[in-house]
Amino acid sequence: MSSPIGQAPTVEAAVSSGRSGAHAYDVQGLFFCYGKLRAHDVRWVLRDVNLHVEAGEILGIVGPNGSGKTSLLKLLAKLAAAQQGDIALFGTSLAGLSQEDMARTVAFVPQESAQMFPFTVAETVLMGRFPHRRRTRWNLGFGWEDRDDCAAAAQAMATMDISHLAPRAVTDLSGGERQRTMIARALAQTPRVLLLDEPTAFLDLQHQIEICSVLRRLRDDHGLTVVIVSHDLNLASQYCDRIVMIKEGAVRSVGTPSEVMSVEVLREVYGCEVLIDPHPESGLPRITLPRQYVPFNV
């Protein structure tokens, strides 16, 4: 656990300078496995992960199925605890932060959400205000949302283009609409760091692009730090500032999309050949399937 006093300048710097290279997260020597740690036969989900997330950047975590991407994200959100190693959020060890302190700074959007009850979209988004509720002993846990809460939720809904859905029940929404509602809930939390697990998995092309653009805008305008787990290498390549490639729980490669997305790295990590050429507009790497992998092609 780090000393509170010594950290203050770092935090200040992180707030004021946005993208000046201050770290939102510092991850050191992280080992993680599910269940109890036994002396023999440990199956590490994450092995010796060292990385940092700069304040105000969009970091993509990519890798094959079961490589530990989601586990890493959960560790960053403090939803799971590592057996070894340390994660620091703006210079403060996660071990010293309560779940509530975390919730005011970090928002987490799970891969899918199974809401059984017909909460309206507006109600769901307003749940993101829970960490900011006022605490009084005698309100019997009711704590009505105030104007600030409604304003934050309305802003988040406008950002995710779901304002028109406000009175609809989340149980009646399409997968994409529900996903956007969940992201809006996270934005209503007014976080400094946004953690997203496969946010574009259920979305059509238009909404995929829209969400990625929104994330970039939030980063540019508000210095929001975004960590995003994705299967979509092209999306990650076009929209992330840096990419972490994970293979079997260990970091294989970190860097800008151009540094990470190489034929050699992808062959090693995914075990297949791909074609990589520069994107016609951005010049960033574009990954395509080679012809021999396309079935029924004469």
Partner: peptide, 12 residues
């Protein structure tokens, strides 16, 4: 136990 974290960044 914990130093103050940065305040919310998204303007409303």
């Amino acid at each position: 136990a914990s130093p103050p974290l940065p305040s919310p960044s998204i303007q409303i």
